[in-house]
Amino acid sequence: MNKNQQAEFVKWFGPLLDALRELGYSGKPKEVSDTIAKNLKLNESVLDAALKSGANRFHNQVAWARQYLTWEGLLDSSERGTWKLTEKGKNTKLNQEESRKLFLKWVEINQKARKSKSSIQSIKEQEEEDPESIEIPAESTLIDVLQSLSPSGFENICKELLREHNFENVQVTGKSHDGGIDGFGILEINPFVSFKVLFQCKRYKGSVSRAQVGDFRNAMIGRAEKGIILTTGTFTNEAIKEASRDGAPQIELVDGKKLVQMFEKVELGVKPKVVYEVNLNYFQKFKD
């Protein structure tokens, strides 16, 4: 492999470690990405760029940076859904040259483990694929299935999903010219408190924009205090800010990744499967 060949996500190695230290040594993936973006003052063009699949490029690159740092033993992969620094990681800082050396080390190790693919092929794959899809291939498969449904079919599967997550009296309205509201349900917090929730379903491969979130909120006014937008795609950074804007009804955003997690949690249309990932870092010490 050309020694200059390098994936873009390598530049996030050091900032990712710094972000986790700032967050108290652990954090959710979105928290980590947001902290990196804040610390480096990244512009919207970087934060909203998408891959061919429609996934967010920046978040995907940060996820790949996390994967390499995990292989190196700097992050703990035992707790799913939370990124946590190991003792080694707490005391490690990486500049670009150190990050590059770490990257090349693991590209070589992985290339030997996957003899059918060259190092350059592996790097190109990592630029476009989600590292989680390697560990859980069903994720991309489920998204593909959901995106293949008819618009009304996707609305009805979202209705079933909300029912499984304890919503009651869930209905799909099926009305056109209704401001983008596809249905509603009742969420009971306790025997004394419950409220109406409106929802919108977007069977997207791309991103939901700030304007679309604003339009949905406008349609909610006077009808409900809470709304949910579910999509098989992603949300732009500005859409996320709009959803939680102060002084306006709050809107919950469920992107493709979270949607998959919701299906998996209640095992709706999916069956659990145990997958073991080889810890290459563990076996590396036995090669010397």
Rank of each mutant, 00 (worst) to 15 (best):
S176A: 13
D144A: 13
D178R: 07
I134L: 14
G183C: 05
F154Q: 03
K159R: 15
V107Q: 15
K101R: 15
K105V: 06
E160F: 04
S140R: 09
Q121A: 14
D182P: 07
E129M: 14
E139R: 10
L187R: 06
I123D: 02
D178P: 00
L162D: 00
I109F: 11
Q126C: 07
F103T: 10
K175H: 13
N166P: 00
E135N: 12
G180V: 06
I109G: 01
S118A: 08
K175R: 15
E155G: 01
S150E: 06
E155A: 04
E127K: 03
F154V: 03
N169C: 06
G180I: 02
I136C: 09
S122N: 14
I189E: 15
H165E: 03
E108T: 14
T173M: 03
S133C: 10
N156M: 01
S150I: 01
E164R: 00
D144F: 06
E135D: 11
T141Y: 07
A138M: 13
E168L: 06
V107P: 11
G185S: 04
Q147P: 06
C158R: 00
V145Y: 11
E168I: 03
S119C: 12
K117M: 15
N190P: 07
G179Q: 08
P191A: 03
L142F: 02
Q111Y: 08
P191Y: 00
F103N: 13
Q147G: 06
R114W: 08
L161I: 00
G153C: 06
E132V: 04
E132F: 08
S118H: 08
G153I: 03
G180W: 07
N110K: 08
I109L: 12
A138P: 09
G153H: 02
I157P: 00
P191W: 00
A138D: 12
I136D: 14
K105M: 12
R163L: 04
D130G: 05
V107I: 15
C158G: 02
F154E: 02
A113T: 11
Q111D: 04
N166H: 05
L104R: 15
H165W: 04
L187K: 09
T173F: 07
I157Q: 02
D130T: 05
L102R: 09
H165T: 03
Q147A: 03
S140V: 10
E128Q: 14
